[in-house]
């Protein structure tokens, strides 16, 4: 059985009357890559802050390692980056990492390896304050990995970076995920989550909307994109098919949304029988973004 790393029970945080996180129950198991999704202000950072011992919960509880370790002991086993990289600007990269090893009570042997991984070994003797934002962010990743964590928590790791920086960080995250580290990635950038995560948790206004595999956010059978010379005939024909829920017209042609499984060749066969020949037929799955929007808007 997969080991439970973190369990949240009815965890809540209120700021005055505002409920930032409302009765959140989540289980994180070893070996998965989780995406924590939600628009700005949906309670992602507050949730992470609570399990990372910097925000006091209003009610509810959480347990690390099924209660085997105190929160602060458990945090020594994991790695976390939240929002901005926080280091001592007057210390060099190497000194900062040495200090973190003292705090985490881990060996300093892997410092070189991790700095090389993020491409900062050459700059190890430079003071942190001389680093660019991208370098700071990469140092934060090295710092989070220095204890070879079982769980890596990343909160908006690409915030404020230029496209090249974003690409570097994503490549790093993918690499780390491939090595089998459990990751919890909080982001409002959906494609980011879609690319690396296999499980998602969707939050809105502090409430959990969904928890499960990426594909299963909404019950969806996908949709067809179709084009034909005689669009009217095509449209009226599509509306007759049982599996088609709705047909929409847009600039590229027609979009037929399904309410039951229907394969491309089946549809193609039906169309041929009806003497309708299409210039374009493609079956598509809705993107995570579409699913996310429909999920948070419907409810």
């Amino acid at each position: 059985m997969e080991q439970t790393l973190l369990q949240l029970n009815q965890l809540s945080k209120s700021y005055g009357r505002l409920k930032a996180v409302d009765q959140l129950t989540i289980t994180l198991k070893k070996g998965n890559v989780y995406g924590l999704l939600g628009p700005n202000g949906s309670g992602k950072s507050t949730t992470l802050g609570m399990v990372l011992n910097v925000v006091n919960p209003t009610s509810g509880s959480f347990q690390w390692y099924q209660g085997a370790l105190d929160t602060h002991q458990a945090l020594k086993q994991i790695g976390a980056i939240i929002e901005r990289p926080n280091f001592y600007p007057y210390m060099t990269a190497l000194q900062n990492l040495n200090l973190i090893c003292k705090i985490k009570q881990c060996s300093t042997d892997s410092i070189q390896e991790k700095l090389e991984l993020v491409g900062l070994w050459e700059r190890r003797h430079s003071k942190f304050r001389t680093y660019s934002l991208g370098m700071k962010q990469r140092l934060a990743i090295a710092a989070a990995l220095v204890n070879d964590p079982e769980l890596l928590i990343l909160d908006e790791p690409t915030n404020g970076l230029d496209p090249e920086g974003i690409h570097q960080i994503r490549a790093l995250i993918t690499k780390i995920a491939e090595e089998g580290t459990t990751i919890l990635l909080a982001s409002h950038l959906l494609d980011e989550v879609e690319k690396v995560c296999n499980q998602v948790i969707v939050l809105k206004n502090g409430v959990k909307y969904y928890e499960g595999p990426v594909d299963g956010i909404t019950q969806t059978y996908g949709y067809f994109e179709l084009k034909a010379k005689n669009l009217e005939a095509l449209e009226s024909f599509l509306k007759e098919i049982d599996e088609v829920e709705t047909v929409e017209k847009n600039t590229n042609g027609l979009k037929a949304v399904l309410n039951a499984p229907l394969a491309s060749e089946e549809l193609s066969e039906k169309l041929a029988k009806a003497q309708i020949f299409v210039t374009h037929l493609a079956k598509k799955k809705p993107s995570l973004e579409d699913q996310f929007l429909s999920l948070t808007q419907n409810q």
């Binding site: 011992n53 929160t71 602060h72 458990a74 945090l75 020594k76 976390a80 280091f87 705090i103 985490k104």
Partner: peptide
């Protein structure tokens, strides 16, 4: 904040 996250109580 970072010290606490790193596991200092």
């Amino acid at each position: 904040k970072q010290n606490l996250i790193d596991g200092l109580s």
